[in-house]
Amino acid sequence: MKVLELKEVNKIYDGSEVHVHAVSDVTLDFHEAEFAAIVGPSGSGKTTLLNLIGGLDMPTSGEIIIDGTNLSKLKSSQLIDFRMRNIGFVFQAYNLIPVLTAKENVEFIMSLQKWSRKERDERTFELLKAVGLFERMNSRPSKMSGGQQQRVAVARALASRPKFVLADEPTANLDSKSATTLLEIMEKLNHEEKITFIFSTHDARVVKMAHRVITLEDGKVVSDDKRE
């Protein structure tokens, strides 16, 4: 089942002094439960493409359709609501809320969606167990390692059962062991929850585990390898 569709997407930053064609004529489809990596050198447009897919930025031309909804047609407030319900985000620098515990960070998005306390607790415990941090649920991010924080971030991204999760360089700040653990967890959740993962990366380990590798150069898709 197709969850995401990009049709001839272009993004041009046209300033007074610079003119950058960050994403150029990208046309891609993503299906349910895909585990896809977007790779490419720095400045190839990976982050821009993820921002466009996540509705954090709007394409200069082309269409991005998520589960039948064209993002360009949504108003700003509708777009925020749409992101909340359909897209999970994992950031390179974890970006957890430092004053909240692991449990509170995970349930934050569910409380924004007005889930009941019981539903929130069930889902939070389920995810924290899945990422191996059930015992640390009452710890604040400052008391956790980078790898643990990123696992909490993955749990948060999955909390409201989005259509797909976008992860921008999720292992960039992690040591080798933590990165491997994180990737294994992500792959397991991808399999169990049937949620599509799309991540930008430079990390060869991530690329190795990905079921599909999309290579960008100068904003263009130069290869799209699907592995079985």
Partner: peptide
Amino acid sequence: TKELGMLTAIGMNKKK
């Protein structure tokens, strides 16, 4: 700034 950006990204609307 970064945290507020993250909150908006994950779906915290302007009212909230």
